[in-house]
Computed example of a mutant assay.
Amino acid sequence: MKIMNLWAFILFSVLLAGCASSTPPLMDNPDAESKGYLLDAGDTVAINVYGEPDMTMKFILDKSGTIMFPYIGEMVLKGKTPEQVGAELTNRLRGDYLQNPMVTVNIAEFRKFFVSGEVKIPNGFAWEPGLTVEKSIALAGGFTDRADRKEINIRLAGTNQLLENVDVRHSVHPGDIVIVGMGFF
């Protein structure tokens, strides 16, 4: 009798664990999104070199992802985190130009994501950490009267893959296109 109860307990535990792990998370961790954010075309970057107003500036990254920085020349920012860019600038300015440079690099404005289809204000909007489909639709003024609230798709940036009928809690990333379909009455 004890062996049968033990087997029933093990079977129940395995089934319960399988059910719990079968649902993927819908929204990524917003803190992790902003900390590991890689710069790309469309991002506006603010660089501040303490005590050097001529070196404090903003750049909008173009497709090449490079900037021309005073005393250094061309520098590639695309594919790097703001922290990596700050460390590289500090190292390249140290010595010949400044004794102990203090450099901060911040994202002044994230690159855009887009909302199209049956929303009141279809447009591109600056991405922000923790962005979901629901928040993106709110930024676009909400659904129109003709919107099919169940037919929401996302065209992923970079891959052009289409995710169909996503949940409103699904995360949206920079460059993604949220597409709200039209309902037929």
Rank of each mutant, 00 (worst) to 15 (best):
F110R: 00
A32K: 10
G86V: 04
F59V: 07
V133K: 13
D167T: 08
E118Y: 00
D148I: 00
H170L: 12
I179P: 03
V85F: 02
E74A: 11
R94F: 01
F12K: 00
L77C: 07
K120M: 15
P70N: 05
D145W: 05
F125M: 03
S34C: 03
G142W: 04
S136H: 02
I179F: 15
D145K: 12
N48H: 13
N100D: 15
K120P: 02
Y71S: 13
F125I: 04
I154W: 07
V178R: 07
L98P: 05
W127N: 05
M27K: 12
W7S: 11
E33S: 09
Y37A: 00
D28Q: 11
L39I: 03
M182N: 08
G175R: 05
G158H: 10
D43K: 09
I121H: 14
L39A: 08
L38Y: 05
M57K: 15
E74G: 07
M182L: 12
M4P: 02
S64D: 15
F185C: 00
G141S: 04
M182W: 02
T159D: 09
Y97V: 14
I10Q: 01
K112D: 14
V14W: 08
G73E: 06
M57L: 15
T66E: 13
G158T: 10
M102K: 13
C19D: 02
D54C: 00
W7C: 10
F12L: 13
F113Y: 14
D148G: 07
A147D: 02
A87M: 11
I137C: 01
E134V: 02
A108R: 05
G130C: 05
N100H: 14
N123I: 03
L39M: 14
S34T: 13
S171I: 06
L163Y: 08
L77R: 04
I72H: 09
G124N: 09
E118V: 05
P25R: 11
S22W: 01
S22G: 03
D176S: 08
S136T: 09
R155T: 11
R155G: 04
M57W: 01
L39Q: 06
V133H: 10
L162Q: 13
L15Q: 08
L156V: 13
V49W: 07
P129V: 08
K80V: 02
G175A: 03
F113H: 06
G141E: 06
M1Q: 14
F184L: 12
L16S: 09
D43Y: 06
